[in-house]
């Protein structure tokens, strides 16, 4: 579903990604872990070209997406993204946040989008907030809305960039529950997170990224219990 070949990313003189090769298949839940500044968020943001790629190739459904010929907006419609800072649109109600893109991009009529929006809000347990504005919601509620907003486009892949890092501790659980539910439904997901317990529970595969390369990749069992790489061991000894 997503193939990454020899991905490099430089910010000016700073080299953040130093050759990443990775293949993510349909239905996989890939959790990316690693120390701060290791390049894991940059890797995720390269997947939908929020960062332009310095070198290398990214294929989504066998289409090379970092080529000038590709309409990136169409590719992004297949990939939902959830941000650390939620990035809900503060001038729109919750329902408008969810229905804006599907209606504007002619994926659905207004009525269909509202109906879908209600289904999604029910799924994240926030139906009563449909007419509220983002400023009236707690952090956990905002992030659940952000997930619903991304799902409204019927994406094939969901990308999560540290979705719980900006939340108060008591709100982390409600967001992780929604993500677990999503994983169980068979959604292909790539998740950057510091929640090791969550990674262990839902990941079909864990990637340990450091210094801009994938140091170790395997099932949660393999990576957490029998890490092979010295850096993985060192990292896990600090966070577990």
């Amino acid at each position: 579903m997503i193939k990454v070949k020899n991905l490099h990313k430089k910010f000016g003189g700073l080299s953040v990604l130093n050759g990443i090769d990775e293949h993510i298949s349909q239905g996989e839940v890939v959790v990316v872990i690693g120390p701060s500044g290791s390049g894991k968020s940059t890797f995720l943001r390269c997947l939908n070209l929020l960062e332009d790629v310095t070198e290398g190739e990214i294929y989504v459904d066998d289409e090379l997406i970092n080529s000038p010929k590709v309409n990136i907006n169409e590719v992004r419609q297949k990939m939902g993204m959830v941000f650390q800072q939620f990035n809900l649109f503060p001038h729109l109600t919750i329902m408008e946040n969810i229905t804006l893109a599907p209606v504007l991009l002619k994926k659905m009529t207004k009525d269909q989008a509202v109906k879908k929006g209600m289904d999604l809000l029910r799924r994240v347990n926030l139906e009563e907030k449909a007419q509220a504005y983002p400023a009236q919601l707690s952090g956990g509620q905002k992030q659940r809305v952000a997930i619903a907003r991304a799902l409204a486009m019927n994406p094939e892949i969901m990308l999560f960039d540290e979705p719980t890092s900006a939340l108060d501790p008591e709100m982390v659980g409600e967001v992780l529950d929604v993500m677990k539910d999503l994983a169980r439904s068979g959604m292909t997901m790539v998740i950057v997170t510091h929640e090791m317990g969550f990674a262990r529970e839902v990941a079909s595969r864990v990637l340990f990224v450091d210094q801009g390369v994938i140091m170790e990749s395997g099932t949660p069992e393999e990576v957490f219990c029998r890490p092979q790489n010295e850096r993985t061991k060192l990292f896990l000894s600090k966070v577990l």
Binding site: L50, N73, G80, F83, Q85, N87, F89, L105
Partner: peptide
């Protein structure tokens, strides 16, 4: 306006103008 707003819009598939 926070840059995250632009990123959120673009990540949904909206073009720059939209």
């Amino acid at each position: 306006v926070d840059h995250g707003q632009t990123e959120a819009g673009r990540s949904l598939g909206l073009n720059g103008f939209q």
